[in-house]
Simulated scan of single mutants.
Amino acid sequence: MSKKKLLLVGAGGFGRMVAERAMIQYDCAFVDDGQDVDTEICGIPVVGGLADLRELRKEYGLLVVGIGNNRFRAQVYERAKTLEFAFPNIAAPSAYVSPFAEVGCGCVVLQNACIQNGASIGSGVLLNAGTEVHCDATVGDYALIYTNSVVRTGATVGNFARIGSNCTICNNTTVPDGTDIPDCTAVH
């Protein structure tokens, strides 16, 4: 049985981590403006740049963005939406996503990340390794949470927020849209 074809936008560090997970389930190709077409990265071909999305849509129906810049990631998703791409979620086999959590589209959940019962994750969210989103917490669209950070029960992380590594967003705390929380910070 052949795998569905998936375009991975971004072949940098984060894009390669996404690719490791995506290639388990999909036949992948990279789109990256900084790479030459027909090169291979992690055994995956580069088939074009962002300007080629319309043409590539004829062959690929699925797309995931593996770029850490929240605003740029959102722009790519919005453009791809107008071209009628679909956006699957990519989750590492070791990640846990509760069947009672809500997860938007185009999200990436890396190894050992955990999304607990009642949590709500927006679209285009990147959850790095070891991230925990506890019961009834909310993470807004296009947020990025780095390694080993915890969003505690009832907390809200706004759209486009960036949470550094080893951070704790305490119970019932709100991180406003677009906020950048530095590494090793507790937000009360």
Rank of each mutant, 00 (worst) to 15 (best):
V151L: 02
V47C: 02
Y96L: 11
G118V: 03
N128W: 08
C170W: 06
N166C: 13
C105L: 12
G34K: 13
A137C: 08
G61Y: 02
G15P: 06
T168H: 07
I115G: 00
I24G: 01
V108E: 00
Y60H: 10
A51N: 13
M1T: 15
A161K: 12
G122H: 00
G34E: 10
A11C: 06
E55V: 14
P176F: 02
D52G: 04
G48I: 06
L6P: 08
L6F: 11
M17S: 14
Q25L: 14
Q25P: 00
G48N: 08
N171C: 09
A91M: 12
I90A: 07
P45R: 12
R162T: 15
G43C: 05
V175L: 01
D177N: 15
E132L: 15
S2F: 09
G106I: 10
V109L: 14
A29W: 12
A80N: 04
T131A: 06
E40N: 09
G130R: 02
D52N: 14
G124A: 10
P182G: 03
V37K: 11
V37S: 01
T39M: 08
G12Q: 05
V9K: 01
N171Y: 05
Y77H: 12
R54C: 05
S149I: 05
I44W: 03
E40S: 12
G12W: 03
S120D: 02
V64L: 09
V37R: 09
G140T: 10
N117V: 14
C114S: 13
I24H: 04
N148S: 09
V76T: 04
T82D: 02
V187E: 01
D33I: 10
F14H: 15
V31Y: 03
H134V: 04
R152M: 14
L53M: 13
Y96A: 03
A80P: 01
G130M: 07
I115R: 02
P176Y: 04
N70M: 05
P99V: 12
G158I: 01
E40P: 00
P176M: 00
L110N: 08
G49T: 08
G34Y: 14
I121P: 01
D141L: 05
R16K: 15
G12Y: 05
G13M: 01
A51L: 10
N172D: 05
N69I: 09
L63H: 04
I115T: 04
S98M: 09
L144Y: 08
A86F: 06
N69Y: 06
V157T: 06
V175E: 04
C184M: 13
N128G: 05
A186K: 13
T131N: 00
V9C: 03
N171S: 11
V47S: 02
A74T: 03
E102T: 15
N89L: 11
G15W: 01
Q75V: 04
T138Y: 04
L63C: 06
F14P: 00
V76G: 01
D183P: 14
Y96R: 09
I90V: 15
K3V: 09
L126S: 04
D36E: 14
F100Q: 12
I181E: 10
A91S: 15
C135N: 13
Y142P: 02
G13T: 09
V150H: 04
Q111A: 15
V157Q: 03
